[in-house]
Design a binder for these strands. Structure first.
Lengths: 188, 188
DNA sequence: ACGATCGATGACAGCGACTGCCATCAGCGT
DNA sequence: ACGCTGATGGCAGTCGCTGTCATCGATCGT
């Protein structure tokens, strides 16, 4: 048996998630989170860079999945379709824990600070996607543009997926949103 | 003659801009900014919501111009073209002070915190654009999608405009980027 | 088995962003 | 002249976050 209870990071994340949900992000102090996890404020900051980062711990895995899927997409696929494949894979991953994603999104939507953090995570996703496209031989500005547009599609589809009461298929929503974008850019 | 020197807000903004440029955003304290402007820290926060907001004072005017231009665009124009008209107008406004925009962008690029703030301003621009499109009768998700894609085009064009040494026409870059997006979404 | 080392944590001081509250004081209207 | 207003100063306080050092089981080498 260890000197400390195991999984400190997990306990901190769980405590933070619960408190953000109960009182809201701004009304929760890091000291309170740490106390609920049976730890100290200092230890919280050893596990998470800041108070917001707790909610975005899974972002790296999502980015890796996105990049890998784009890299492994069959070469005949054009830029948007390769991007779409990656985004659908990411969507499928999120879909595995829809309940959690909804609660998380409710917390984020209630705080401007958290929305800022979410946007920079999405921008990081866009940058990674653009790089993955460049690896496929797509040149700039097409690569950046496709990546940004892809993330835009993802954002819109995600919003719909989270809001809908009847449980829709997320990858399908991504596909539909992309089709809609294609229609709009084609001038209707 | 007034009790205080005039244009406190302007002096604060100028002092902040100069110090952010010299030492960087994180290495500058609000107390230093206030001191250079001949005021106190407390007064800084009466004029600006926070330390970052100084650099985004003009965002409201940009949004208004965007929305107005979209609203006044001739009705035969489809969603993307109406959006493009608005974005080009916004681009033209920024172009009036290219030097300033470049310095500002250099400061922002050097700070993660400032990049976050910039992204939420762009998101706010996207939301306003989507609303303006809805006012033109465009339905969701087409309105949101067009708005997000439009902002994506704007971001890419802005980046190119700021980086280029040879002074390019910003509205023209927006048009070119939009054409590129159209090509990509059409499957090349 | 024993001592050196390590790694996760606690304890504490300190900085800087931001807020609330009250005081100050020139100008302005009555 | 008098009181009100509005911009500012001053000050205390909270909270996010960091640097530093101490603590003490666990583990490794011998």
């Amino acid at each position: 048996m260890g000197r400390w209870e195991p999984n400190a990071r997990g306990r901190l994340a769980q405590a933070a998630f619960a408190l953000y949900g109960e009182r809201g992000f701004e009304q929760t102090t890091v000291a309170e989170i740490a106390a609920r996890a049976g730890l100290t404020e200092r230890t919280f900051f050893r596990h998470f860079a800041d108070k917001r980062e707790v909610l975005f711990a899974g972002a790296d895995a999502l980015r890796e999945l996105l990049v890998d899927t784009v890299a492994k997409a069959p070469m005949p696929l054009g830029p948007i379709d390769a991007a779409a494949a990656g985004l659908e894979a990411a969507g499928a991953l999120l879909q595995e824990s829809r309940e959690l994603a909804q609660q998380r999104q409710a917390i984020i939507a209630a705080s401007a600070e958290l929305r800022e953090r979410e946007l920079i995570k999405l921008a990081s996703l866009a940058a990674a996607l653009a790089e993955a496209l460049r690896q496929r031989g797509v040149r700039d500005p097409a690569a950046s543009l496709t990546a940004e547009a892809g993330i835009a599609v993802f954002k819109v589809a995600f919003e719909r997926w989270v809001q809908e009461t009847n449980q829709q298929d997320f990858p399908r929503l991504i596909q539909e949103s992309l089709d809609e974008l294609k229609a709009v850019t084609a001038g209707r």
